[in-house]
Nucleic acid binder design. Structure first.
Lengths: 257, 257
DNA sequence: TACTGTGAACATGTTCACAGCC
DNA sequence: GGCTGTGAACATGTTCACAGTA
């Protein structure tokens, strides 16, 4: 079959669901651990447990990649590691730059999980001239002026932004202008980018807020009653005074001034 | 209405969709920014743009909280800030502990986004005795032996784990035993916890892998053809030799030994 | 026998488009 | 007129349950 990508199930062709893609790294991590322990074969049940998902989901996920298992036996660990790595594009080398070398940038530079997955930290970049030359994780920090040159010289297509929020959009613009097409953003800002550029964000405080939401639910589960556990005085609604129909926990019918 | 939570739309009662909950912090951040600029009112369109979502989604999300807008006008900024904060449980104070004070732990301790959202770092904990007493972000690091005491003395219900992977499960078990019921895990491991305990994970390398997946797609978009851009030699499949039907990018029909 | 692979049922999430209201 | 709020249509994701097979 030399005519490239022509066969394929034809039904969903080249569309691995996003939800599945997001779990592949999880499976890969679990498989890598098994591989290191020289486990030759694993069942969907075992692997699912190791990855923290249920086995039906795992099998469904794998079915999008192809039929890589053996009925009655399970999956060949090494083989699956290879297939998932290839699917994720980890059989090639991805040079990345990290911009903004504070505590977080340093943590990222030191993070072992990158190197072991085909990601190579091509450069660390910071706007503070005092940092230039200082090695972090064995890599000397370069000044932001060099950004464009670094990106093009190294063929960097993935950039990591760990600057303060205020600098993020500008850094992003420069990365994109220099040729970066994927950005991992740790700064708590919405980045705007042209079409064709992917952004993923990781916001440390958002995750905590989601936990707080659920935590609050647990507390109020059956101890309910308390409609005014609030301690902060609710602000007054601007205009209209009537007609709100928010669920419970609502403010008093006429809001305090 | 002293009889607590009795009214409510009755249809979906107390179920804000997870996807909506996950976006509330985003809206809150955008609203806070508007509030700081003393903007009194905002339309779904404007706010959606600021939060990086589309306006239909935003309106739908808000509709789960109640009818907090004014037709023809928009939403009152201060009022919405309050409502969302309350919904997320941020009108109360959440003491958190951070366990594992490496670069990442330090980054978290320094992160301004916590304090400003009702999260108070009650303690920093590390297993390294040499760190004990050293202040990080103005808070002295305490030894891991103190973990249980710290958690119960401070009524901590949310714990953050930023230890190496190997230590995470043990730390998790101790946190849970001490009374923590929500955990934010930065260690690249699957944590197992009893029912009733929430875990959210943030994995720095997983996000990069997802980007790599999409990046790979972009590259191969129309330059397709190359069925063997692979450079790493594919491992041999254990047993059976025939009958795989993976989509394109498959290995040669008979795998090389 | 013990497993995978997968249709079909179900659940959740998103978008559309417009009625309702200020 | 210009906005919100929301049913209804659609899209995506998850789970079930079992046929197929090494």
């Amino acid at each position: 079959m030399a005519t490239g990508r022509t066969h394929r199930p034809a039904t969903r062709s080249r569309g691995i669901p996003e939800a599945t893609v997001a779990r592949l790294p999880l499976y890969l991590r679990a498989l890598t651990a098994l591989s290191e322990r020289s486990v030759p074969t694993v069942s969907s049940e075992e692997l699912a447990a190791a990855a923290g998902v249920n086995s039906a989901k795992l099998r469904k996920d794998f079915s999008y990649l192809g039929s890589y298992g053996t009925r009655g036996v399970g999956y060949d660990v090494e083989y699956l590691v290879y297939q998932i790595s290839r699917e994720l594009g980890l059989t090639q080398d991805w040079p990345v730059v990290i911009v903004g070398i504070g505590n977080l940038g340093a943590a990222l530079a030191n993070y072992g999980g990158f190197a072991s997955r085909g990601f190579r930290v091509a450069a660390l970049i910071d706007a503070d001239p005092a940092m230039a030359g200082t090695p972090v994780a064995g890599i000397p920090v370069q000044h932001a002026d060099e950004l464009e040159k670094i990106v093009s010289d190294n063929g960097v297509s993935i950039g990591v932004i760990s600057t303060p929020a205020g600098a993020a959009q500008q850094v992003c613009d420069r990365l994109v202008a220099a040729g970066v097409t994927s950005i991992l953003n740790f700064a708590p800002t919405v980045l705007s980018v042209p079409d064709g550029v992917d952004v993923r964000k990781v916001d440390l405080s958002i995750e905590l807020q989601i936990l707080a939401f659920h935590e609050q639910r647990k507390a109020g589960e059956e101890a309910a009653a308390g409609d005014d556990v609030d301690q902060a005085a609710p602000p007054v609604r601007a205009a209209a005074s009537s007609s709100r129909k928010g669920p419970d926990g609502d403010m008093p019918a006429v809001m305090p001034a």
